[in-house]
């Protein structure tokens, strides 16, 4: 196995040459940890690691860190998602240490949706550093064992550092330069926005390969099964930075309502099967939003099960 820098299982799976599978769970809007535990339980045998979202869409939820600790206690490997919207550099570094104290060893560095979309639209935001600088911050803490302020960290965090990439947002001409920037900042894995426009994604991957980025960072292709034609239309028209081609909407609308969910799963499986063959795609990030019970079927039918057992 090539050299790994952290105890992360996700890093090991990727280093051993397997295509990795991650998924994500959203914490509950209350303090019942059972909800997050149940979701994670449904997918534990079908993924290498589980992202825990950080107040996604700016709606207040049980925190990502506590949820990650619950998963860790169940023997499931969490990926701590951390947005820079709500915390300044003191709080971010402090939470990274908190996570490291529980040996949480994956982090995904994000900007976060603007709070205007959430349940506290009148709240202040922070954006002390940006997602790119959060990547740099974690790498500095890990590799140099130093805080941003320069002081030494006793027992530095050992985290495999990830970032998001959206191949579909505008302006398209800087989407690959932006990926290059995240790699330069220190990102070791990438989870992409949900892919429905395969041609555009493949074009993005080709440009990434031209610059050799696929060899410097493990790109996990993001997929989300559509539950209904309505969801397809909503994602197409209402979700910023989402690219759902007309053919996909048409295909979902073309089947009877009670069969649309199955059609959505089929599209998702077909997407994974096609992207598995794309050079530089090192795995998949399956985001089944409030539909975790479908992850096992998607992973199995895509030929990604069983997951590798590594020590």
């Amino acid at each position: 196995m090539s050299d790994v820098k952290t105890p992360s299982k996700l890093e090991k799976v990727l280093a051993s040459g397997h295509q990795a599978v991650t998924s994500e769970c959203g914490p509950p809007r209350g303090s019942d940890a059972g909800e997050i535990r149940n979701k994670a339980e449904m997918i534990r045998d079908h993924v290498d690691a589980v992202n825990i979202t950080d107040n996604q869409t700016s709606v207040t939820r049980l925190c990502s860190l506590a949820s990650c600790i619950h998963l860790k206690s169940m023997g499931i490997e969490p990926v701590l998602q951390m947005v820079v919207r709500d915390r300044n550099r003191i709080a971010l570094q402090s939470d990274i240490l908190g996570a490291a104290s529980f040996d949480i060893c994956n982090i995904l560095c994000l900007s976060g949706d603007h709070q205007a979309f959430g349940d506290n639209a009148q709240g202040q935001n922070v954006f002390d550093i940006d997602s790119m600088q959060l990547i740099q911050t974690v790498r500095r803490m890990r590799d140099e064992g130093r805080f941003l302020g320069g002081d030494e960290i006793h027992r530095p965090p050992r985290m495999f550092v990830g970032a998001a990439a959206n191949p579909f947002a505008d302006p398209f001409e800087i989407r690959v330069p932006r990926l290059a920037k995240k790699v330069a900042a220190g990102a070791e894995f990438i989870q992409t926005q949900c892919i429905y426009n395969l041609e555009k994604f493949e074009q993005w991957m080709a440009q990434a390969r031209d610059r050799g980025l696929h060899e410097k960072v493990a790109i996990l292709a993001g997929v989300t099964p559509l539950k209904s034609a309505g969801m397809a239309k909503y994602m197409k028209n209402r979700v910023p930075g989402m690219d759902v081609p007309d053919e996909v909407v048409k295909r979902m609308s073309g089947v009877a309502k009670e069969k649309q969910a199955q059609e959505g799963i089929d599209i998702c499986v077909e997407t994974i099967q096609r992207l598995k063959e794309v050079e530089g795609v090192r795995g998949f990030h399956v985001m089944a939003i409030e539909w975790e019970q479908k992850v096992p079927e998607i992973v199995e039918r895509s030929g990604l099960h069983p997951r590798p057992e590594l020590d």
Partner: peptide
């Protein structure tokens, strides 16, 4: 979001 390194995914 006063980002210093480029547009977010929402552009």
């Amino acid at each position: 979001k006063r980002l210093f390194n480029g547009p977010c995914g929402g552009s």
